[in-house]
Each structure stands twice: as C-alpha cells, then as structure tokens.
C-alpha cells in the first residue's frame, strides 16, 4: 500500500514540477508549484514527518505561494510567446547539464542504503511535534531565536526595497 501511495505522489510531484517549468503562463506555473508542494508534503507524511508535512503546507503552499501569486498578479504579466525561440544552443546546453547533474547524483547514490542502519524503531516517533519541540527548544534554542531575528530583518528589508519612493521619483523627472 505504501508503495502505491509513494508512486502516485512521486508521479504527481515530478509531473507538476515539469508542468511548472514548461508552462508559459506564470500563474499556471505558480499553481503547479502549489500542487508540487502539497504532494511533497504527502511524501513527508509517508516518511513519518508529520510536523514538517503540516509546516510545508502552511508555510510553503500557504504563505510563500500566496506571496508569489500576489506579486504575479500585481505585475500583471502577459504569457510568454514561446519558451523555445532563439538561442537553441542554450537549451541544449541546459538539458545536457541537467542530465549530467542527474546522473552524477544518481551515481553517488549507489549503495547508500547499505550505509544506513536497519530501520530503527524510533522512526515512528522521530517526526512528531513532541520530538521536534523537545530538541528545538533545548539544544537549538539559540538558532531558533536567530531565526526570529532573520525573519524580522527580512520583512524590514523587503519593505525598504519595495517601497515606492515618491520624492526620489519626482527629483529624477
């Protein structure tokens, strides 16, 4: 049963990833990415990482993708006329680079399962909120607080970058 769910989710993930890359309409690309995030969250559930599956849906498929869609609709972009027009050499090069990267990664994966111990009984409980919270708020408390500062800095920085400076614009005209 697990195998069938995994195959279904893997096909969904790869298909929506390809759909995102090959779609001319930016909004459709973003919606494909939402589908991709949700199916990756399903795979996290298969891996017994319940907390991160939830966070994946809340943060990625929820917050980040809403931000993306908001910006796309704010910019009011037209469809790209064609993905493959000129500079064909670039696409061939990109494709071959992708194939080389994929084969390198897959080659390095050979025998990686033998390096791991047998599936430990802790796997069932490793991904629960209790287990993560126990470690997060003791051993990694400092890093957690730094994350809060990072997010605050990101919000302030984004406001600084994106704000519309009326006075500057007037001076340049």
């Amino acid at each position: 049963m697990d195998t069938f769910i995994f195959i279904f989710l893997a096909v969904l993930t790869i298909g929506s990833g390809l759909g995102m890359v090959l779609n001319k309409n930016t909004v459709n690309s973003a919606l494909f990415l939402v589908l991709n995030m949700v199916s990756i969250a399903g795979i996290y559930l298969l891996l017994q990482a319940q907390f991160l599956a939830l966070i994946q849906i809340l943060v990625y498929a929820g917050a980040i993708m809403v931000l993306f869609l908001f910006v796309i609709m704010l910019l009011n972009l037209d469809d790209e006329k064609s993905l493959f027009n000129k500079m064909r050499a670039k696409y061939v090069f990109a494709f071959f680079l992708g194939v080389i990267t994929l084969s390198l990664i897959l080659y390095s994966l050979e025998g990686v399962a033998d390096l791991l111990p047998e599936i430990s009984p802790e796997m069932e409980t490793a991904g629960t909120v209790e287990a993560l919270g126990d470690v997060l708020y003791t051993d990694y408390l400092f890093a957690f607080e730094m994350t809060a500062i990072l997010l605050t800095a990101a919000v302030v920085g984004a406001l600084m970058i994106a704000q519309y400076k009326k006075s500057n614009n007037g001076a340049s005209e």
Partner: peptide, 11 residues
Amino acid sequence: SSYHGDVTGQI
C-alpha cells in the same frame, strides 16, 4: 532523518 530515527535532520 527518518531512516536514521534521528530528529536533527528535521530541525
């Protein structure tokens, strides 16, 4: 992280 049963990777 899951296959090791170690929560650090998920952190």
